[in-house]
Design a protein around this nucleic acid. Structure first.
Length: 814
DNA sequence: ATCATAACGCTTTTT
DNA sequence: GCGTTATGAT
């Protein structure tokens, strides 16, 4: 048997077999999966099945190793084996699959040799879940995590080697850092108005990103007073973080990189451990993250980065799409694969999105295409006011629902959270169930942070910041001034606040409050001594009562405190489920890690059917059958701040592209001629981005009425059976009841038409609503020139609607 | 020490 | 327009 011939036949069969096991993928996707060795840049457009490629690529590494990407074969291969795999490559008989795949594999990677980095916990969880489906138990050993949790894991093991922090360090979130900066400004006597804590933090964050230390920052500041002051704050900030044994989000990565550089043996350990590296959303990495990845990949260069330069929208947080744009320069022999087939949207949507993003100059260049068909044109609605805009969205959703869509098929995307208000009102008025994302999160609530602060202090008494948060909460008669003097002495003596408080008797300045202070430190010590004695949920219960926190809330007895008490109890549910997730063993430190890094535990609950509204930023990675992009106006989107700066405009344009490509079937874009924002009315023209959409993709609807003509009853447009009216003149020519014309409301005429409405509908009437079906009006209450009607529907239960909005969808049943 | 009122200022935010 | 924060009064 000819050796060359044998090898070639083996390679051919092997290729066929591997290709077959990834047969569901398109050619580009399969190429991405099978390119395992060396640097790989995977440019994955929106909706191109990126996650599928990542999952399958990992599966390929584990099942076949480097077999799909090299010319080597096992020396020991026999003729019988060759014939076997050739037979399998021809007939693919399922009973032969297992042996054939095993034979074909070449140096398969153990799961723990693979690291897959994502940005969000959600993405990491999804990755893990899908890997488990594909690979079973083995999937658990793949390091699939966020940058931050990977770094925490690394630091918990070796951070003490650097001599600044101990392994039990705590993690400060953004608001912790903000209050730390505020404390520092106060102590250094710096005016908060001249030096906004937020911007100081972002400068510090920027410096860390470039690995500039406080000292270096200060010496680079020269005589610039602004930078000098910030440098001082930065220095103080770093010092206090070290004293408190605390790390912020940036530090997690910064100190990991430092650890790698200072302790080569640590770096080497991970370089040897991870044979394959995979980074998702590479366009969102900052310098530090780039550095982290580069160091890890330096030895083997088996690094695959996945991203879309057109979707980089986090420049303001330090992300630089430069990382993805220059990947090819960094790795000379790098291979590039483009995924341009889109499985999500229609041709109209993609054509429009492509046209918009094409205007950007800083990009690799990509054109999405699809086999999904033309679809519907995009609709631009130019509303008279923000109210009108919101009502338009609501009416479209109601119409859609009445035609069989789910509420969750609809998403409203806006540029800023402040825009959600009007929409919420409109949704409430119309009885549309909805959920707003990105607002106040459960873990952001003061009472939750308070309880977590207790747990942090119990875990790490050196945590001065959290200590200050809880020392007088609930009130223990320990005032700010007492704490301030104690902190001063502590700084002078080189102790942490907690250590000093225990010795407060020794200091005359603290004599007066000594009893109270010791009561507090004893309480914390009592809690600490219970850590090893109790289960985590039990410990929480103990802290809850021992601190008097819950009792203080219950004593207040206002509605608000009632809710707070509930939230605090609700936290226990989270603790219990945390323990359950870890098979009954949950320790305090791990729980706090998870809390610090897992901010979005209350995610998109799929079980509740709700329309959703969120910023375009938070919509990244999601998709919806129908998407409304609202407020697409100059000065809002693009925002005032970015106008005039070409780079900023490009970032906004990418955001626009992200928003547009969320839509699967239908995309509505709306703008208002006039809107009230931040208490001021402004008139903006339709966004330049809309003008970049080819005319043939777009159908435009103008609100007929301008806002001032309140008295006219013939406002509105007619289109496709949907009826809609503008401003405050509500005509109700529902298709079924064209004569039902009345007018309620307006800010001008107080309530002139109220009786008229009353004539149309009254309590006890049986009605049919276009979206909700049949129902009976069970109550009616006059409210601000309108009526709040309560209707018991046969199918969807009781709803409370504003008559003026609802009437256009209602008729009397007879 | 805690509650009230005035003044400000305001993108986006995976961790 | 609203929510947060700074300051003063009790």
């Amino acid at each position: 048997m000819n050796d060359i011939n044998f090898k070639q036949r083996w390679l051919d069969a092997r290729r066929k077999i591997i290709e077959h096991s990834f047969g569901k993928l398109n050619p580009e996707q399969r190429l991405g999966v099978m390119t395992t060795e060396g640097p790989l840049l995977l440019l994955a457009g929106a909706g191109s099945g990126k996650t599928t490629v990542i999952i399958n690529r990992i599966a390929n590494l584990i099942r076949f190793g480097k077999a799909s990407d090299c010319d080597e074969i096992d020396e020991s291969a026999t003729d019988e084996e060759l014939e076997f795999i050739e037979r399998y490559a021809k007939f693919f008989s399922p009973e032969d699959a297992k042996r054939a795949e095993e034979l074909v594999a070449y140096q398969p990677a153990e799961p723990w040799r693979i690291m897959a980095i994502t940005f969000t916990n959600k993405a990491a969880d999804e990755l893990k879940a899908r890997l488990e489906v594909m690979l079973g138990e083995a999937a658990n050993d793949v390091w699939a995590s966020t940058f931050h949790s990977a770094c925490v894991r690394i630091l918990r093991k070796d951070i003490d080697r650097m001599g600044m922090f101990s392994k039990s360090f705590t993690i400060y979130d953004t608001s912790d850092c903000l209050s730390l900066v505020k404390h520092i400004l106060k102590d250094l006597d710096i005016d908060e108005k001249k030096f906004a804590p937020r911007s100081i933090l972002s400068v510090i964050s920027g410096a860390k990103d470039e690995m500039i230390s406080a000292e270096e920052f200060l010496s680079a500041a020269g005589n610039d007073p602004w930078r000098k002051t910030i440098g001082q704050v930065y220095k103080e900030y770093t010092g206090r973080m070290i004293d408190s044994n605390a790390l912020d989000f940036d530090d997690l990565i910064l100190y990991t990189v430092k650890l790698f550089m200072e302790c080569p043996e640590v770096l080497e350990f991970y370089q040897n451990k991870f044979r394959y590296l995979l980074v998702d959303e590479y366009q969102d990495t900052n310098m530090l993250q780039y550095k982290f990845v580069s160091l890890l990949a330096d030895k083997r260069k088996n690094i695959c980065v996945v991203g879309d330069d057109d979707q980089g929208i986090y420049k303001f947080r330090g992300a630089t799409i430069e990382n993805i744009l220059s990947f090819e320069k960094q790795y000379k022999n790098c291979r590039v694969i483009r995924l341009e087939q889109n499985y999500r949207s229609t041709e109209f949507i993609l054509e429009a999105s492509n046209a918009v993003i094409r205007r950007n100059t800083a990009r690799k260049g990509k054109e999405l295409w699809t086999k999904n068909g033309r679809g519907e044109k995009l609709t631009l609605y130019v509303a008279a006011s923000e109210n009108d805009e919101a009502q338009f969205v609501a009416s479209k959703i109601l119409t859609g629902f009445s035609q069989g869509a789910n509420w969750s098929d609809f998403a409203v995307l806006y540029r800023m959270n402040a825009q959600s208000n009007q929409l919420e009102h409109a949704f409430k008025r119309n009885g549309i169930p909805y959920k707003v994302f990105g607002g106040m999160k459960f873990y952001d609530r003061a009472e939750i942070k308070d309880m977590l602060a207790y747990m942090c202090v119990v875990n790490n008494p050196d945590d001065d910041l959290r200590l200050r948060r809880i020392i007088n909460n609930p009130p223990r008669g320990i005032g700010d001034k007492t704490v301030d003097t104690a902190a001063e002495i502590a700084a002078r003596e080189g102790m942490t606040l907690f250590e000093l408080l225990k010795k407060c008797r020794e200091y005359p300045e603290l004599q007066r409050s000594a009893a109270k202070l010791l009561l507090f430190t004893n309480m914390i010590d009592d809690m600490r001594s219970e850590v090893s004695e109790r289960t985590l949920d039990d410990l929480y219960e103990f802290i809850l009562s021992k601190s008097g926190y819950l009792a203080a809330l219950e004593a207040k007895n206002t509605q608000e405190d009632q809710t707070r008490a509930e939230n605090v109890r609700e936290l226990k549910t989270n603790i219990v489920s945390f323990i359950k997730d870890r098979n009954g063993v949950g320790n305090l430190a791990d729980f706090l890690d998870e809390m610090a890094l897992y901010t979005d535990l209350d995610q998109l609950e799929k079980d509740t059917d709700c329309a959703v509204m969120m910023t375009m930023h938070s919509a990244k990675g999601l998709e919806f059958p129908t998407v409304f992009m609202v407020g697409v106006e100059e000065n809002i989107f693009p925002g005032t701040r970015s106008i005039g700066d070409p780079e900023e405009i490009e970032e906004e344009r990418r955001l626009c592209y992200v928003g547009m490509t969320r839509a699967k079937q239908k995309l509505y874009i709306t703008a208002a001629k006039q809107r009230m924002l931040f208490g001021r009315t402004s008139c903006n023209s339709v966004s330049r981005f809309v003008k970049e959409i080819p005319e043939e993709c777009l159908e435009t609807i103008q609100a007929v009425r301008n806002v001032s003509s309140y008295q006219s009853s013939s406002g509105g447009y007619k289109q496709g059976g949907g009826n809609y009216s503008v401003g405050s003149s509500y005509s109700a020519p529902a298709p079924s009841a064209p004569a039902a014309k009345y007018s309620v409301s307006s800010k001008i005429a107080a309530k002139p038409a109220a009786p008229a409405a009353n004539v149309m509908f009254r309590k006890g009437d049986s009605i049919v609503h276009k979206a909700f079906g049949a129902g009976v009006i069970s109550a009616m209450q006059e409210m601000g020139g309108d009526f709040l009607v309560e209707i018991i529907f046969d199918k969807v239960g009781t709803k409370r609607l504003m008559l003026k909005s609802a009437a256009q969808y209602m008729k009397k049943a007879d």
